[in-house]
Amino acid sequence: MSLLQSLSQRDRVFDFMAPQASPVDVRHGPILYMEDVTVSFDGFKAINNLNLTINDGELRCIIGPNGAGKTTMMDIITGKTRPNSGSVWFGSRHNLLHMNEPDIASLGIGRKFQKPTVFEALSVFENLELAMAADKRIFPTLTARMTGEIKDRIDEVLETIGLKALRHQPAGILSHGQKQWLEIGMLLMQRPRLLLVDEPVAGMTEQEMERTAELLTGLAGKQSVVVVEHDMGFVRSIARQVTVLHQGSVLAEGTMDQVSNDPKVIEVYLGADDEEAA
């Protein structure tokens, strides 16, 4: 990365130097549009000419073997990693490559990490409170008051994720599955337009998985949701559209049935999976 580029990025850590975000414009098509994106780490192409389109309100599952570039793709969308080339648009107005992480977050892209990260020292209620869409500048945050409206909104989400009874417990004592839900709840508090969910059911019990599937399908329609998942059973249970990534680019796209019958996919992914299983 050139020095100049890094300089220009650093400037925007402080948002008074950046243009104010304007609402997402999806009148002219998809909510997320990635074109010819390439990223390489020391010569290794983690993402190679990736093209991906997510429509407003869609629930998309992304699968692919290890190293296919799923996590890197999410890093690009959220601004954590800068691609070497290509373009990424949010709606038809926002070029995500010109924005940093907090800007992108406040624009309405929420991300749930593979490993659940909640604020363990804070209570469940406070975790949701911090996640809430609000004026996140310093002084408004300092003087923020707890209003009935906010409380109602938090209660609503607590209801959705099923953690109402644990509202005052520190998040550190929650079980693994509960932390995953809390994190999804935190994303919901942001009222995101696009939710990126990385392996939501890893390490969950059967019941927890079912509950998570319900949660995610319930969100689709109101929000666009992109789920990266390894667990085929889970993907089958929630997926309408599936994208298969392989070696950093899209291998196949379609419904679960279409994809799982695609010979290329069977070869590189499902086939390998079967062999492992056998």
Binding site: G110, F119, A121
Partner: peptide, 28 residues
């Protein structure tokens, strides 16, 4: 005890996460 204090604690324990929530951590 303000919300800013809770953002601080959040920053202390999971800085990247706080940033993803839309807080400009470096300003806080």
């Amino acid at each position: 005890t303000s919300k800013l204090g809770r953002v601080s604690v959040a920053t202390r324990d999971a800085e990247a996460r706080t940033r993803f929530l839309g807080y400009r951590v470096e300003r806080f």
